[in-house]
């Protein structure tokens, strides 16, 4: 079966006067229809850059993109702006961390939704839009009166739900959540994640969750991709990766994360800092912080290799079949 999104060897570099920051380097992964992928890593690891680059919303005159990202047979990296605009919202939609800040404070939610709807369906009638919005509002457990409210009359959680409703207006095939639940309270975050997962059972939707919170991935995704310093270091099923992380960075992330149940192990941080991405190290990017670093790690860059359980790991110390 053809993949919904097939990213191959995607690199994104921010161009500066003095130095070029290689924020994403040779990322390759695929997502199937109806799948959900969590993209995790610490801040500065390039997870947002990767997604925003794919969606072509980075400033084009100050970045350089190579590689390809095939979405339903079209290469998102090379198609024209007009073509990209046709895909946006109808096929691909994004929910940002503070999506509620994008709402106009002086217009009612309903008016704003109508405007947004008509950008892609200019001839839609008011009743049609109203019906569609009501259907979506019910899906995220919101009362109908929201349609007539102003943004200041609602809480952060409700506004974030409105943002999700807006992103779903045209039933996109691919939905990207960029830290969409990070700023919310525990209960609100739990509710929204539950609603999103339940929604996926009723409508066909593929989802990418960008987050630094492992527990969000654990509770709402099927697959996980771990990024470090612009590179994908481990990709696999959530069940495999979080239960038994193989890459030392994933292991480090997991052991620095507190769990709500089970034994209280000592929390351990990962020592050191991210390498300077304008001059990435020749060997493994994680070598300087890795507890198991060897001579080979410093000189030779590890490639993603496939493990028996289907996941891919980029580490010299973890064996496995060479990919491709």
């Amino acid at each position: 079966m053809e993949h919904l999104l097939d990213v191959r060897d995607l690199s994104i570099t921010y161009l500066n006067k003095s130095r070029n920051v290689q924020a994403v380097r040779h990322a390759s992964f695929t997502i199937d229809r109806g799948d959900s992928l969590g993209l995790v890593g610490e801040s500065g690891s390039g997870k947002s850059t990767l997604a925003m680059g794919m969606l072509r919303i980075l400033p084009e005159n100050s970045i350089e993109m190579t590689g390809s990202a095939l979405f339903m047979g079209k290469d998102l990296i090379s198609i024209s702006h007009e073509e990209m605009n046709r895909l946006r919202w109808k096929e691909i939609a994004v929910v940002f961390q503070k999506a509620m800040n994008a709402l106009s404070p002086v217009h009612r939610i309903g008016t704003q939704i109508e405007d947004i709807y008509r950008v892609h369906e200019p001839r839609a009638t008011k009743a049609e839009i109203h019906d569609r919005t009501m259907e979506l509002l019910r899906m995220v457990n919101m009362p109908e009166r929201v349609y007539r409210l102003y943004p200041h009359e609602m809480s952060g959680g409700m506004l974030q739900r409105v943002a999700i409703v807006i992103s779903l207006l045209h039933s996109p095939k691919l939905l990207v959540f960029d830290e969409a639940t990070t700023a919310l309270d525990v209960v609100t975050q739990g509710q929204i994640l539950e609603e999103v997962v339940a929604m996926e059972k009723t409508i066909e939707m593929t989802r990418i969750m960008i987050t630094h919170d492992m527990s969000v991935v654990a509770s709402s995704c099927r697959k996980v991709a771990v990024m470090y310093a612009g590179e994908l270091v481990e990709i696999g099923m959530v069940r495999d990766v979080l239960k038994q992380p193989l890459h030392p960075y994933t292991q480090g992330l997991m052991s620095s994360f507190p769990s709500l149940k089970g034994e209280k192990k000592q929390l351990r941080a990962i020592p050191g800092f991210l390498p300077d991405l304008s001059d990435p190290p020749a060997g493994c990017a994680f070598a300087s912080r890795c507890p198991h670093c060897t001579q080979q790690c410093l000189s030779q860059k590890p490639v993603l290799r496939e493990m028996p359980d289907g996941r891919r790991v980029a580490c010299h110390l973890v064996g496995g079949q060479k990919h491709e």
């Binding site: 959680g157 525990v186 209960v187 509710q191 539950e194 527990s215 654990a218 509770s219 709500l260 149940k261």
Partner: peptide, 24 residues
């Protein structure tokens, strides 16, 4: 309610969230 809504890092832990209505 608070604890039942907390996501855990263990994907096998099935969450059965208790119902809560409204906003704080």
């Amino acid at each position: 309610v608070l604890i039942s809504h907390c996501a855990d890092v263990d994907p096998d832990q099935a969450r059965d969230s208790l119902p809560i209505t409204g906003e704080p």
